[in-house]
């Protein structure tokens, strides 16, 4: 028998409530960094009466500044599906160059600072060249660059701490208006500029496209190598500015300046939703990741947790953030 049947589409009866639930859960998971952040702030506030004070908010902002700059710098290569491990080492090395330009070569402090930032930018540019034109693997290339720069910093400082910094140089790290520190403004500015860059410019679009599918981007007329080089260069520049800010804030450059930032600088953007496979992430997420890590650090510093357990507890808090994010990607990406 011949049995070709046509049917009309069945009417929709079930699923409406399911969709609603799905949406709510999706929303929560999308904003999980921020929700977890608020939860932690409230939690720490319960344990320590000083946590929820304006002064502490200022404190958190100051402490988030350098990490935030580094987080942005690390995020950019991640967005094009590469990585730059040399960023924290670049911070230390370039700030030492800037300090030496002032103290040993007699440059005015502002010029000296620009020299430092310039060196950082060039290092970023060089990393980009190695990765694109020489097809070096970014993980290893930047790892070796990190080791080189850490070694170079120790050699430059001979193990000593550089403190001969001009008043102008350290102003930004110390200044405050009405108790509100000035330094976080630089982070706000950087977040804004990178945000605009990513959202509104051709370069930003190209960055997301290259990170998502470099071959297709190339066929679509995007100069993939050029985009990657620019990304690394901007990352280097941000590392240089972060180096200036850190030196200015602590009024000193140690022989291992910045090296301890490495893991946190990578963790912050990833916690904030930047994909290690490229093409996904935005500045709001990065900021969330940076604030989350900073709040954990500050909170644990002023909550009376026995010091032997602080490291472990901090690690657990980060673990939870990453675990929730993984769940989000698993079910809602």
């Amino acid at each position: 028998m011949s049995t070709v049947m046509t049917t009309t589409a069945p009417k929709e009866t079930t699923g409406q409530t399911n969709v609603g639930m799905h949406k709510v859960v999706g929303w929560i998971l999308h904003n999980v960094v921020w929700i977890w952040l608020v939860a932690l702030i409230l939690g720490f506030g319960m344990f320590n009466e000083f946590f929820l004070t304006v002064m502490n908010m200022q404190n958190i902002m100051v402490q988030a500044t350098v990490l935030g700059m580094l987080g942005l710098a690390v995020a950019l290569p991640l967005l094009v599906a590469e990585i730059d491990l040399s960023i924290p080492a670049n911070l230390g090395f370039s700030s030492a160059i800037g300090a030496l330009a002032y103290s040993d070569w007699g440059m005015p402090w502002f010029l000296a600072m620009l020299v430092g930032v310039g060196v950082a930018t060039l290092i970023g540019f060089f990393n980009g060249l190695c990765i694109t034109k020489l097809r070096m693997v970014s993980l290893i290339q930047t790892l070796s660059m990190m080791i080189i720069l850490q070694g170079a910093l120790l050699a430059l400082t001979q193990g000593k701490t550089l403190t001969n910094l001009s008043d102008g140089y350290v102003w930004i790290g110390q200044a405050s208006i009405d108790g509100w520190p000035v330094m976080p403004l630089i982070l706000v500015l950087a977040l804004g500029l990178v945000g605009i860059l990513l959202k509104m410019t051709v370069l930003g679009r190209s960055i997301y496209a290259v990170g998502g599918n470099p071959l297709a981007s190339n066929s679509a007329g995007i100069r993939v190598d050029r985009v990657k080089i620019i990304t690394y260069t901007i990352a280097g520049f941000l590392a240089g500015v972060a180096g200036f800010l850190l030196a200015s804030w602590q009024m000193a450059i140690t022989s291992n300046q910045g090296s301890s930032y490495l893991l946190y600088a990578i963790a912050a953007p990833i916690i904030g939703g930047v994909s290690v496979f490229g093409g996904r992430g935005n500045v709001v997420g990065i900021l969330g990741g940076v604030l989350l890590l900073t709040v954990i650090q500050v909170g644990l510093a002023i909550t009376n947790v026995p010091s032997f357990y602080v490291g472990m507890i901090g690690g657990f808090m980060i673990f939870i953030a990453v675990a929730i994010d993984a769940i989000r990607v698993r079910y809602f990406a």
């Binding site: 509104m200 410019t201 051709v202 370069l203 679009r205 190209s206 997301y208 496209a209 998502g212 599918n213 071959l215 297709a216 981007s217 190339n218 066929s219 679509a220 007329g221 995007i222 093409g279 996904r280």
Partner: peptide, 29 residues
């Protein structure tokens, strides 16, 4: 899939991808 689309971007972003540069002013989309 290999070199036609950027899968995780939207339809609009993919359509605009090849003509971004020429339609921008001062680098802004």
């Amino acid at each position: 899939r290999k070199d036609g689309v950027v899968g995780h971007l939207s339809i609009a972003e993919n359509i605009a991808l090849s003509s971004l540069g020429r339609r921008a002013s001062f680098g802004f989309v």
